[in-house]
C-alpha cells in the first residue's frame, strides 16, 4: 500500500509562480502560486469579478500575463514555462495535452459543422487522416458523453444546451489531454443535466487520470469534483486547502461569508 504513495510522481504537472495580470491600474489577478499534481482536480471559487476567469485564461495562454511563470511538465521536454514558449508550441499544447471547456459551449464548438466533425477536427489537428477511424472514434466519444449515435451528422446548433456542453467535453477529451481547464462547466444548465455532467466528469477524471482546474461559483460542484480548493477575492488568493477542509472549517472572513451564504436545499 505504501508503494503506491511513493509511485506518485513528485514533479507537479503544472507549477504556477507569482502569476499577475493587470487591466491598466486594475488588478486581474495578483501573485498567484500553486502546484497541481497529476490526477488532481483543483477548484477555484470566488464571487464574480474576483479574477478567477482571468486567472484561468492566463494559465491557458488565452490572455497575456504581466508577470510570473506557468511551468507545465511536457511529455517530450519535461517542465517548460508556457508563457515564454513560442506561439506554435503553445498552440500545439492547446491541441494535445491541454483542453479548455468554455462556459458557453458556443465558444468551444463550431456551430456550422456536424457533431462528429466537431470531435473529429481535434483528431485531424494532431494528424489523424483515416476517415473511417476518425468517425469511429468520434462515435465512441459521443456514446461516452451520452449523445445518441443518430445525432452524429447533426449540427450542434440544433442541440440543447446540455447536449452542446457534453459535445464540447467530448471534443476536448478526444485527444487524451492531461490537463483540462474548465470555466463554469455546469453553469446555466438545469440541475438534472448538471448532475449528469458531474457524474460524467468525475468518471472521466478517474478513468483517464486527468488533472483539471475548474472555475465555478457553485460550492456544491467543487465539493463533489475538486480535491483542492482555492478561494479568490479581488484578484488575490485568500485561502487554499483541501476542498472539504476549506468548506467545513474556513479560516478567512470572505470564505466564511461565502460558505455561510449558500442556501440549503
Amino acid at each position: 500500500m505504501t508503494a503506491a504513495v511513493k509511485e506518485t510522481p513528485v514533479t507537479p504537472l503544472l507549477e504556477v509562480r507569482n502569476l499577475s495580470k493587470f487591466y491598466g491600474a486594475r488588478i486581474g489577478c495578483e501573485n498567484v502560486n500553486f502546484n497541481l499534481y497529476p490526477g488532481e482536480v483543483l477548484g477555484i471559487v470566488g464571487e464574480s469579478g474576483s479574477g478567477k476567469s482571468t486567472l484561468l485564461n492566463c494559465l491557458a495562454g488565452h490572455l497575456p500575463s504581466d508577470s510570473g511563470e506557468v511551468i507545465f511538465d511536457t511529455r517530450a521536454d519535461g517542465p517548460q514555462d508556457t508563457l515564454t514558449m513560442s506561439e506554435p508550441e503553445r498552440r500545439m499544447l492547446g491541441r494535445t495535452d491541454w483542453a479548455f471547456v468554455h462556459q458557453n459551449p458556443r465558444d468551444g464548438l463550431r456551430m456550422r459543422i456536424s457533431a462528429g466533425g466537431n470531435v473529429g477536427e481535434r483528431l485531424m489537428a494532431v494528424g489523424a487522416r483515416h476517415y473511417g477511424d476518425i468517425r469511429q472514434e468520434a462515435g465512441d466519444w459521443l456514446a461516452r458523453v451520452e449523445i445518441d449515435m443518430s445525432r452524429i451528422d447533426d449540427r450542434p446548433s440544433g442541440f440543447s444546451g446540455g447536449m452542446q456542453q457534453r459535445l464540447q467535453i467530448a471534443r476536448n477529451l478526444v485527444t487524451g489531454p492531461r490537463l483540462v481547464f474548465m470555466d463554469e462547466p455546469t453553469g446555466g444548465l438545469d440541475v438534472s443535466v448538471q448532475a449528469r455532467l458531474l457524474d460524467l466528469l468525475r468518471g472521466l477524471v478517474r478513468r483517464l487520470g486527468l488533472s483539471a482546474i475548474i472555475v465555478t461559483h457553485d460550492l456544491a460542484v467543487v465539493r463533489l469534483l475538486a480535491d483542492r480548493l482555492m478561494v479568490m477575492k479581488g484578484g488575490q488568493v485568500v485561502e487554499t486547502g483541501l476542498t472539504d477542509q476549506v468548506l467545513d472549517d474556513p479560516q478567512h472572513a470572505y470564505t466564511q461569508l461565502l460558505v455561510s451564504s449558500v442556501l440549503q436545499v
Partner: peptide, 12 residues
C-alpha cells in the same frame, strides 16, 4: 500538504 492528506485518505 493537501496532496499528502489525499494520499493518506486513499490508503490509510
Amino acid at each position: 500538504e493537501p496532496r499528502e492528506i489525499l494520499g493518506l485518505r486513499r490508503e490509510t
